[in-house]
Nucleic acid binder design. Structure first.
Lengths: 206, 206
DNA sequence: ATAGTTATATATCGATCGATACAAATGTAT
DNA sequence: ATACATTTGTATCGATCGATATATAACTAT
């Protein structure tokens, strides 16, 4: 049974993806409704927008969910226990960096850059899912280090939180460097450098 | 000889500092004129604002200059040849992190977070001085590594750009972590971790 | 005292912000 | 054919955006 009523003239899901790109590029507050409307299905009217998405804020929420379910999956390895902790960390760094630098969408990570997406006090709640994702990713890095310690791969003296923060902070910075136009190959070389941090802490007794 | 004409009812320099804090917190585009006016000298009128600063953009430029001449100086060690390269890098990381986490002003670094200060194409030129400062800081880190190689402190095999990017990317990430409320002590511990990167590359022949 | 200079206060500019009212258009269900 | 559901187009809402015109107030220079 098909839907009742007059059919939509644009693809709603494609519209969410398009909105995601715009919010990713400019952030929540700086993106205007006219901007969104103009880039959905070759341009839609105000009532069509509100009928389909409810409000700018609700569309942003959908766009964030869309990002988390697609592009943000580059960090999934952090919670995959079938991958060694070291590989999980390196894979995450390389996958995320590659994604952040590839063409076809805005540079950098929407979650990281989302720190400044809704800076006004009245809108901080809007970017809350992004903050939650950042917190989760940090925990993911710490988790990997803890797993390595438990597995006896890293020394018991290793400070898991410190190492987790170090890897996470580097990756957050990649978003800014990608926006500034630093090459993916240069960033990859610096990942190789950064991973030496892991190898120092390798358990000698192995 | 004192100035002619009716005297100003507010301190212009204090106003620039106050504006700097607001732009630092919210970015250029998201900061409104009313917000600036309300926070200058207990509130000023629109004509007073324009008479004193010319425009929102010009005030932003002054605010950025003010930041670069004060808070941004935490990275000055990178160009100080009287400090050993390693100390220069560590000092910069610790000073900047301390500054970014201290109270009395917005968390994070105005230069780093300025990546999303003016995301609209029509305003990108406004945040250009911030981008230039980020580029300069990156070069400062690279410079320190190069200096260490020249001095024979680091191995000649060291990839200066990769290491520079690694330290710089970490520091850029600190801005986001500081905004997210991560403790300064935790960040400091991760700096201790990060500096091990340097010690791995130490020249063995010394 | 008078002229010249600068900042002030009041009022308002056109443009854009996010969001709605209303009625015509277009589909399905019976 | 009719009723119902949903989207569309046109017009517009009050609020705020950054910025300005005009006239008055407060100071210095002569």
């Amino acid at each position: 049974m098909a839907k009742m009523g007059r059919p939509r003239t644009f693809d709603r899901q494609k519209a969410v993806v398009q909105a995601m790109y715009i919010f990713w590029e400019h952030g929540y507050e700086t993106t205007s409704l006219s901007q969104l409307k103009a880039n959905i299905g070759g341009g839609i009217s105000t009532p069509s927008f509100y009928a389909a998405f409810g409000s700018k804020e609700k569309l942003f929420n959908e766009a964030v969910q869309c990002y988390l379910e697609t592009y943000a999956c580059v960090t999934d390895a952090l919670w995959d226990d079938e991958i060694s902790p070291r590989d999980a960390v390196e894979l995450t760094l390389r996958r995320s960096t590659k994604m952040q630098c590839e063409s076809g969408h805005p540079k950098g990570c929407m979650v990281s850059l989302g720190t400044m997406s809704a800076p006004s006090p009245e809108f901080t709640h809007v970017a809350e899912p992004l903050a939650a994702s950042r917190s989760r990713t940090l925990q993911g890095f710490v988790r990997c280090v803890e797993r390595a310690i438990t597995m006896g791969e890293l020394s018991k003296k290793t400070n898991a939180r410190s190492m987790g923060i170090a890897f996470n902070s580097f990756l957050l910075g990649v978003s800014i460097l990608a926006r500034d136009g630093v090459d993916a190959s240069d960033l990859n070389d610096s990942i190789t450098e950064l991973m030496k941090l892991w190898d120092i802490e390798l358990c000698q007794s192995k």
